[in-house]
């Protein structure tokens, strides 16, 4: 995949950081404001997809990236399951039990395990979308050789 012009590359470099930070904000404030793991993860993935589209496929080492995002995705799903099973063990035998203290509603650190679930599912969604996009890009590179 070819990169685009210098203007597009520069704007993409400037904007992708902002989009990434906004995605992280949506994930970490998921229990306070609208949004959550799914929306923030999709935003984080969009920041990376913007960089890859603007700079072309020679910009990053693509094969290593795809393996890394695949590993991150699987690990995040596993962490969600481990957290849910921990709720089963700790406290009253309920899967997805909220076993941490809930704290004061409205603070950033509150609501027990819900922010942790949001962070892990954000990692999973971002890594899954990046993996799908990178798989398509790498496939196209390979068949065009």
């Amino acid at each position: 995949m070819q990169g685009m012009s210098v203007i597009v590359k520069k704007i993409a470099q400037l904007m992708s950081g902002l989009i990434f930070v906004y995605g992280v904000y949506i994930i970490t404030h998921g229990h306070l404001t609208p949004g959550g793991g799914f929306a923030g993860g999709a935003l984080v993935a969009g920041a990376f997809i913007l960089l890859i589209l603007a700079n072309g496929s020679e910009y990053i080492k693509l094969k290593r990236q795809e393996e890394g995002s695949s590993v991150v995705e699987s690990t995040a799903v596993l962490l969600v399951l481990v957290l849910a099973t921990t709720g089963l063990v700790a406290g009253s035998l309920v899967f997805f039990n909220n076993f941490l203290p809930t704290g004061i509603p409205g603070r950033l650190i509150s609501a027990g395990v819900i922010p942790l679930y949001n962070i892990f599912i954000g990692m999973e969604v971002a890594a899954a979308l990046i993996t799908i996009f990178l798989a398509l890009v790498i496939y196209k590179e390979e068949i065009s050789k």
């Binding site: 998921g30 306070l32 404001t33 609208p34 959550g36 909220n98 004061i104 509603p105 819900i114 949001n118």
Partner: peptide
């Protein structure tokens, strides 16, 4: 019950 102000996430 959940301590989460965003009811959807809770």
């Amino acid at each position: 019950q959940t301590g989460s102000l965003n009811l959807v996430t809770g």
